[in-house]
Design a protein around this nucleic acid. Structure first.
Lengths: 224, 224
DNA sequence: GCAAAAGTGTTGGTTGTACACCCATGA
DNA sequence: TCATGGGTGTACAACCAACACTTTTGC
């Protein structure tokens, strides 16, 4: 009985443009699913480490590189691929859109940031993979402070709040949000403020990752 | 470039004997890692669905069958197998020890429930897999009411508390635990009480899964 | 001066935590 | 009658949700 099976990796890359949550998709230039939108993904080679493979695939198809990919789930239904049996390992990541301009290549004729709300069906079972990634993302946002990867280095508390509102898909009270976040004590207030805005300039903050790790190591729980 | 890769499935099966958390292990009768303890696991066949494969493997090696296995993680380091490259998909489950007496067969010379605290190193990277499963188990126990699978159908609140104490590895206040659990309103108090115990007989409860699903569907969060 | 977003406190209700004694039972 | 675990209540602290006005800025 055959026990060697093709494995692929697929990447769900989330970005945020200060208003909406987006995902990095490619348009396939080849069958199967020619001209369909799909998650960037390709076969795993036998000498590739899994996470490296995911990074390589992503780079090959979209030019996005060197990001931290986290394993999401394995999808292995017998019928998930139209011809072969292919087991796919899905990875996901959060990145800053403005620092990751996609450039299509290989079998991707296009590679673009697409708004979540505009995404319909995708190639293979990629829509299911995306939905799973979205559920995971929401759970993560409630359970601990993530998502700083989706923002620029310096951000205002309103930007951070809008991100949470976009991901959790619900409005959040400005004052309570601010208090809760600042109490956690891993946001570093900067001297710098917004400029050229038609309203009171907001203070910038940066995420103090070291402080966060320190607190997390002490077992502190950051519920949201 | 070769892109077909052997895949295996490994199962981390947790049980609880009213005192300690245990895991179902096999002793391998074949190389590699002959005579080492290992998680029950074997190759995935090309026509097997993933979860079925995990159930089949578990049944073949230990006789434990028809349990709900949840996907844990994929382990795919290039060096995790001494000769080939094998990517493994780990599954985990919680079962009631007294209803799942292991019977070794196939390449398992033994199949036993082993106390977590007694487990040293295991074959392959199985120790790492076990550690990951333990971390997941603890997180699950905090985040929602799980673990009823580890108990008999009817159980006392003390049994439930001892389970939580064993998994979370910390003592819990009797009164607070009781209040918190009962407030969640998915434990069904039964008329039946303990018998032949040298102290006041405790009331039995059962887990009202329907009520739980109903509450969960309403978006109620059960933090512990 | 107006539109737009920033920033700021208080209150009432809920929840979590710490803690100690009496009860029922079998040996 | 003693040892064992079952079962119960309260008080204080911490946390959360709801809510409105003043400030700064560019146009």
């Amino acid at each position: 009985m055959e026990t060697k099976i093709p494995i692929s990796v697929d990447c769900v890359i989330f970005g945020f443009d200060d208003k909406e949550l987006k995902v990095l998709l490619i348009k396939r230039s080849q069958p199967p699913f020619q001209n369909c939108w799909a998650l960037p993904g390709d076969r795993l080679r036998i000498d590739e480490d899994l996470r490296h493979a995911a990074n390589n695939v992503l780079d090959r198809l979209t030019g996005v590189r060197d990001i931290y990919l986290e394993q999401l789930f394995v999808f292995g239904r017998l019928d998930r691929h139209p011809s072969d049996r292919v087991v796919t390992i899905a990875y996901y990541a959060l990145v800053n859109i403005s620092e990751n301009e996609p450039k299509p290549s290989s079998f991707a004729s296009r590679a673009e940031w697409i708004r979540i709300s505009k995404i319909g069906d995708l190639a293979y079972d990629h829509r299911k993979i995306l939905d799973k990634a979205l559920r995971r993302l929401r759970r993560r946002f409630r359970g601990r402070p993530v998502g700083f990867e989706l923002l620029p280095e310096k951000f205002t508390l309103s930007q951070l709040r809008r991100l949470y509102e976009a991901v959790l898909d619900q409005p959040l009270d400005k004052r309570n949000f601010r208090r809760k976040m600042l109490k956690m004590d891993f946001l570093l207030p900067l001297e710098e403020k917004q400029k050229d805005v038609a309203h009171k300039a907001a203070r910038f903050y940066s995420f103090n990752r070291e402080r966060y790790e320190e607190l997390a190591a002490q077992g502190i729980r950051f519920e949201f």
